[in-house]
Every structure is written in structure tokens, then in C-alpha cells.
Simulated scan of single mutants.
Amino acid sequence: MPYNRVDVAMRELLSAFSCLEGAELLGRLARTAAAVASAPYAGFVRVDALRQEACPVHVHAPPGDPLRLRRWLAESGVLKELAAAPEAVRLAPDVSMGEPGFLATPVPVAARDHTFLWVAGRGFCDGDEHLLGRFATAAGRALEAASGCEAAVRLLRGVRAFRPVPP
């Protein structure tokens, strides 16, 4: 089979654009948000376009989930609060009530439903909110870039599939 520069170039381009996996990127962003905020927990919550329901799309938790945060997310009402919230949400920790301390900030992502990046597991202050907001902006850019790369891969596969075969 003769050397085909187009096939080689397309394979290389597809490989370069395919290096970002959306789910893996969410995991990396959540782990880094936890580290940046010095919190044991972090994750993302997506709110539907009508702002009626919110659901966790990724949760980073320490092994064994010692604060039972996954359960708290589902039962505490914080998801309903996020669904209605136009801006950051901060909840103080209260050990007697099982409140772990929680901070969520909107992620500016144009191509998705309303998304929040959150951290939990300690008390948070205005400085934490500012820092998480800046990180959320960077995370939004990364998620949009990954989405753009995924779209480019689909388009390039179409180009590759319909490219005329040389005689």
C-alpha cells in the first residue's frame, strides 16, 4: 500500500484532538478544585435550562466518604438551592446537623446548561469564594475547549470518511 500523506496527517490530527476525555477532564478539574480550596470534597452540579432541577455530574470524595457527602447532596436540599441560585452559594459547617460546609460557584460555560463547581468539607470565607470563582472560570474554558475538540474530531472523521479515494 502506498504511503498516503492525507491518512497519516488525519490520524495525527484526530489523535491530537482526541486526547481530552470529557469525564476524565471533569475528574481532574474536581480534584484540582479540592486541592486549591484545601477541601476534601469537590465536584460539579448541572442545572437544567428551566432552573428547576440540579444533579451531580461528578463527585470527588476521599475514600470511604467519611462525611457521607454523597448522601448529604441527595438529601439536604442543596441541589434545589443550586437550581434556583443565580450566583455563588455558601453554607457554613454545622457538625451537630450534619452540615459539612459547602461552597459552590457558577461555571461560565456557554455550551452547556447552568453548571456549578463546588467544594465541601470545611468552613469557607470570601477569599475562598473569590478563588473558587476564578478557578471556575478557568474550568469553564477548559470544558468548552474539550467540547470544541470533540466536535472537531466528529467533523474530521466525516471528512476522512467522505474523502475521495485517489485513482
Rank of each mutant, 00 (worst) to 15 (best):
F44G: 12
A23D: 14
L131D: 04
F135L: 12
A142S: 09
A146G: 14
V95D: 11
C55A: 10
L79S: 04
R141H: 15
P63V: 01
H130V: 14
E12K: 05
L25D: 02
S38F: 01
E81N: 15
G123Y: 01
S18W: 02
A110Y: 07
T115H: 05
A85H: 02
P167R: 15
F17Q: 15
A42W: 00
R71T: 14
S38M: 05
E144N: 04
V57R: 06
A23M: 03
N4Y: 00
L82K: 09
C149T: 07
A9H: 10
A42L: 02
R160K: 14
R112M: 14
G27T: 06
R46F: 06
V95K: 10
A111K: 08
L82T: 13
E21R: 06
R51Q: 15
H130Y: 14
R112A: 15
F44A: 12
V165Q: 14
P164M: 02
G43L: 01
L156D: 01
F162A: 07
D126N: 11
G77Y: 12
G22Q: 11
R28C: 04
V45E: 02
V153W: 04
A142D: 05
R122L: 00
A85T: 03
W118P: 06
A74P: 06
L26Q: 13
L14I: 02
H114A: 12
A161R: 11
A104S: 13
V165F: 02
A54S: 09
C149P: 00
S18V: 04
D94A: 08
E150T: 08
A84G: 11
A92D: 12
L20Y: 10
A88E: 08
C125A: 15
V57L: 14
R134I: 11
G101D: 10
Y3I: 10
A33S: 09
M10A: 08
L14R: 09
A39D: 08
A111I: 07
R51A: 14
P100L: 06
R28G: 15
A42S: 14
R163H: 15
R154E: 13
T115D: 01
H60K: 07
L103Y: 12
A110W: 07
A104C: 10
A88M: 02
L25P: 01
E150L: 04
G77S: 13
R163C: 11
Q52G: 15
R112T: 13
R71A: 11
L82N: 12
R51C: 12
A146D: 01
H60L: 09
H58Y: 13
W72K: 09
G148M: 02
D128A: 05
